[in-house]
Amino acid sequence: MIRNFFIILIIAGLAGVFVSLFWEFGASDTLTPLATHYANNGAAEVGAPNLVTSIVVTYRGLDTLGEVTILFLVAAIISFFLKVEKKGQKMAPPRVSSEIILTASKLLVPVVLVLGIYVFVNGHLTPGGGFQGGAIIATAFVLLLMANPRFELNHRIIAAVESVSGMAFVLVGVLGILLAGGFLDNKILPLGHFGKLFSAGAIPIIYSLVGLKVGSELSNILSNFQDVQKDEL
């Protein structure tokens, strides 16, 4: 009884705090000086119509590097904890997949892969970018798993793609220091025509590398989860 009373009291207190915050809240229409600079000069400096991309990749490129590193750590820790011990158990065969899902996966996996590549190559023109494209590529792997639950991805190919794209990402960043203004500067390549596919300097290359890295890491996570499922069937 007393415990419930305290819980209700705490919830009421939190509600009071949020209500006071809500009354204080007002969307500000004025930009901060930094945001004003980005909004006015971003398109001319970077050459990308999608301003979010130019901020994520060049102005705040180090953050993207950190995010990719965190994702890599997550993938490594998951594969460490979900390590499968091969005991030589005989696995029960799964239920036979119906023809419809087999056909759909054959039809859709190339389409999903192409959509993922489209999303991260066009990251500077349309909404989207490396992370979104990588997640879509990992989803193609899920589609393969749905058609055949015992499908296995080659771990060596994943590891090779992941490490090569990560290395190349850092290498492009260091090239930015050597040839242009700073780390991950995109002006190591010509800016090109505004709004064309091959424009905005190195942004398409950087985003392709990020997309490949994120896609291989997420596929690796999913593959580890699938390995654990097979374990005790």
Binding site: V52, Q132, L222
Partner: peptide, 20 residues
């Protein structure tokens, strides 16, 4: 951009991982 991320990761991949 955020909507795309939420669609691909929040609604797709995280539900799949939860069900695994």
């Amino acid at each position: 951009d955020v909507a795309m991320t939420e669609a691909a990761i929040g609604s797709g991949l995280s539900t799949i991982i939860f069900f695994y």
